[in-house]
Structure formats: structure tokens, C-alpha cells
Design a protein around this nucleic acid. Structure first.
Lengths: 138, 138
DNA sequence: CATTACCCTACTAAATCCATAGACTAATAT
DNA sequence: ATATTAGTCTATGGATTTAGTAGGGTAATG
């Protein structure tokens, strides 16, 4: 299960990607359209900005906007940024690896093997996705 | 990320599946071999028993044992029992479905579509797995 | 000067992980 | 038979972490 943070972040990014113009969109618009707590969304967008995915502009006419084209924004990047590891267990994570304290050998660990398989399949579907897949065809 | 409960449960089931004989195995043996807090493991095994996967025998020579053959124990069943939904979001869960409060249409929800894809792929790998896949070849 | 992002803090609520302690039950030894 | 012991059952509680909410103030921009 992913956190609300991730879900909201994805929805917000989708909303921005579906924008006609490149003008900044203010937080309140996104929050309202996507039914997200504005304050919570604030912190999410901020972290996306710090990661370089979003840009922002203060003052009148300000708001958030995508810094790259939608097809340049990789889904794996977003997911790892918002949610963290894609793997279901730290010991099979590529970007957030951690050794299990409770098992001495990963080679003989059944759980390890199974989780590796799952990681690979979800990674496979995520790898080929970008924000552009969130843009609705019209 | 799965919980420790799920991880420990899987490891314990694997341990039982790898047993030579059908004799009950006591909690302490499993806990020791797999480096799991014995008391925590107790509650996990109990829930597996209540679900009909494990049987138990009290008193001297007692312990826990598999009630079915390893290949009869489906991985999807175990996962749902220990961890809950396989889906990453309630609105795409088959067994634990819940409507999102924040979106009105699932058809036009980007997140929904993406998460459905991920669900299908992990379900695909889990579907063909049983406890037998945890038995080490020798 | 109005608008909007930015930043900080503190709180609540829930879940996770695990410890502790005792009750109960069945097999074994005497 | 009876006592003993190995083991499961049950319940509770607590420490820690995480998710999410809320408020209020600051800084930049038009």
C-alpha cells in the first residue's frame, strides 16, 4: 500500500501534466480539483520542487509548474521520491538496500527470492512509464 | 514495504515446509533458526492456525505443523492473510476494495490505471507460487 | 498592497513491533 | 492416578515510528 502522500503527489503531477498552458498553477487549484488537503499538498509539492521536478513562482500569478516535459519525467523517479523503495523488502531494494538483521544468507532466503521477483516485475512496468502516460487523450 | 509480521510469517512457513518429517515443530525452534522474537512469532503462527493453514499440538512433543501439502498452500492466500491487500491502493484491490473518497471517477484517474497494472503483474507472479517454491532443492 | 509560495512547529491518531505475565492443555514420568 | 513439564493460548501494554492535520508567520512578486 502506498501512502497518501504518494497518491496525492501523483495526482497533482497528473493534474499539472494535463494543463493546457505552461502558466503556474496555484496550490489551491490543485487541492480543490483533486480533493486534497491544501496544507498537506503544500509540503508534497515543496518536496517535488526540491527534487527538481517542479518549479514555482511566488506572488500574484504564481504557483507550481513542471520543469521538464511530461515524457521526461520518469515514473520510477517519482515513485522513489514520494514513496521510497519500490521493493517490498529492504534486502532486495536497489536504491534503498539494507541488510536484514535476522537472516545471515540472502542466497538461501526464500523470502528474498520471492520479493526479488516481485520487484523485477513492478520495476518492469514502472520503467516504461513517464508522466506522459498520465495525460488524457482527447 | 511489507510488515515484519508478513516477513516472519513467510519465513516460518518456509521453515516448516523444509522440514523432513511431519512432526510438529515447536515455536522456539523456529524462532531460533529464523532469528525471530519468540513471542511475536507466537501470535503470527496463531493467526495462521486460525486461518486453517497450520495445525498445532499442545504438550510435550507438540508444536506447529502444516495442515496441507506445501504445494497446496497458495502464496496469494498467505500474502493476503499476513499482509492484507496485494494492490498498492484500495481502489484497485480485488479482495479489499474501497472507493477513494477523493476521486469521483475511477475511469479518468491516472493513479488508478497505473496501480491496476502493477497489481496485475505482481498478482501474476504470486498466482503461480505456492509454499513449495520455498522448499530448497537438494 | 494583495497575493501566493515558503517555512516552522506542534499535535493527533494509528500502526508496528515486541515484552510480559499468566492461563490452559496434553503428554509423560512416577 | 497423580504430579510434572512442555508447550500452546490469551490479553495487555508500551515504546517507537509514521501519516496526516492545523496554525501562523515570512518572503517574494506583480
Amino acid at each position: 500500500m502506498i501512502s497518501k502522500k504518494t497518491k496525492y503527489g501523483l495526482k497533482a503531477l497528473g493534474y499539472l501534466a494535463n494543463q493546457e498552458s505552461d502558466l503556474p498553477v496555484q496550490i489551491s487549484s490543485i487541492a480543490q480539483s483533486e480533493n486534497i488537503s491544501q496544507k498537506f499538498l503544500e509540503s508534497i509539492l515543496l518536496s517535488l520542487k526540491k527534487a527538481g521536478i517542479l518549479g514555482s513562482k511566488k506572488g500574484k500569478g504564481g504557483g507550481y509548474y513542471l520543469r521538464k516535459e511530461a515524457k521526461e519525467v520518469k515514473m520510477t523517479e517519482i515513485y522513489r521520491l514520494l514513496e521510497g523503495p519500490i521493493a517490498l523488502v529492504p534486502c532486495v531494494s536497489l536504491n534503498f538496500y539494507e541488510k536484514c538483521r535476522d537472516c545471515n544468507s540472502e542466497e538461501t532466503c526464500y523470502v528474498n527470492h520471492l520479493m526479488k521477483e516481485i520487484r523485477d516485475t513492478t520495476l518492469d512496468t514502472l520503467k516504461h512509464k513517464t508522466l506522459e502516460d498520465f495525460v488524457l487523450k482527447r
